Amino acid sequence: MPATRSAFNNARRGLPIHSRRRAHARCSNNAALSVKTTEIGSTAWVEFATKASGEYEGQAVRFDPNSGAALPLDDSIVPDAYREWGVELVDRQANSHSIASDDGIRLLTRLVYPAVGCEADAVSFDSTDRTVLRGHNEAKTILPNGAFSAGCRILPEDAFTKMLMECAIPVSYSTDEEPEEPVRYRFRHQLNGRGVLYVEVIAEQRVAADYKSANLAEPLPPSTCCAPYPEWAPKEPPSDGVDADALSTASAYLTGYWHLGDGENELGEPILMLAGTHDVPTCPMSSEHLVALGGPHNAFHGVHYEDDDTLHVVAGLESHGWVSRKYTKGRLEHICMCAY
């Protein structure tokens, strides 16, 4: 396996080199996690920021929202050599920067165009730069293990306006020799008022502290020479789908449930209030609305518009947790975050 290309792991900067070896996934016992005060500056925010911040490398795959099959990359970004060799690409290398601050957490995500060979000095990429979980004195939908849920609180009135909802679910790995850096799955739903345009999942591993903590002026550019992230090899979703009943029994492990409170925050959004777990609903969808995604850890998602103008969005990993958002008449009603 090629060595990890991350200047953050360069010995000249005195940062550790992390192994890329994988062990079997180990379910984290996070049922005892509790979230009380989660605004910026709170103990919960500091714990979350410590886990979520960092430089990440991994792979991104877009899935058909109806079948769950991995979608091939657009021909316009795939080199001719791959087609000549009969190779179909479904994943793109992801280079991400998560930086927590007094303004929320910045997610700078760069998806690399595939290249033939190692072209570290001639890399092209698409970039998105978002700051989420913004604002003070409001409940942040976060967990101390680095999980979060981010998205609009009021749906656009224009049915054609695109909206991006994003959540992250950590996965714990370890080896017999030493623990590895955290791995997380980021689910990104691109929707409009008429349905799901696509669902994208980024499986990424933290390779170093964020660039600001490393005393660098700016993020380093991605490279096509990073070590591969091999888990996306299976393209087809599991034939047995998703067991919604099994997910519903996980309500006893829910570590965060936010519902709408009175008033608005400084951004004009409904205030979210943390509720006791006895108020938590079970998994909001039946199996017919949950779609298993191709790849590891039994990833799944679901987006369901009901006749009463209610929207449910859910995503997760069967063995690690799930996040759901519910909108009623265009306003966010609650968010559930479950850690197994």
Rank of each mutant, 00 (worst) to 15 (best):
R5M: 13
A11G: 13
L15Y: 04
A25M: 07
S34N: 15
K36M: 10
T37R: 14
T37N: 14
T38M: 08
A44C: 12
T50W: 00
A52S: 09
Q59I: 00
F63E: 07
F63C: 07
S67N: 09
S67I: 05
G68N: 11
A69N: 11
A70K: 09
V78S: 08
E84W: 05
E88D: 07
D91E: 13
A94V: 14
N95K: 10
S96I: 04
A100Q: 02
D103R: 08
G104Q: 08
R106A: 13
V116E: 15
V116M: 15
G117R: 02
G117T: 03
C118A: 11
E119N: 15
S127K: 05
G135D: 05
H136I: 00
G146H: 02
R153V: 03
I154N: 10
A159C: 01
M165C: 02
P170Y: 06
T175S: 15
E178K: 10
E181A: 14
E181W: 03
Y185E: 12
R186C: 04
Q190Y: 05
N192L: 03
G193W: 00
G195Y: 04
G195P: 15
L197N: 11
V199C: 09
R206Q: 15
A208Y: 03
Y211W: 15
K212S: 12
S213V: 03
S213G: 07
N215K: 12
N215W: 12
P221R: 13
E231H: 11
E231C: 09
W232P: 03
G241K: 07
G261K: 01
G261R: 05
L267W: 06
E269P: 02
P270V: 06
P270R: 04
I271W: 05
T282N: 05
C283M: 11
S287C: 02
L290A: 09
V291M: 07
A292H: 08
G295R: 06
V303G: 03
Y305W: 15
T310H: 11
A315I: 02
E318A: 12
I335T: 14
I335H: 05
Y340E: 07
Y340I: 08
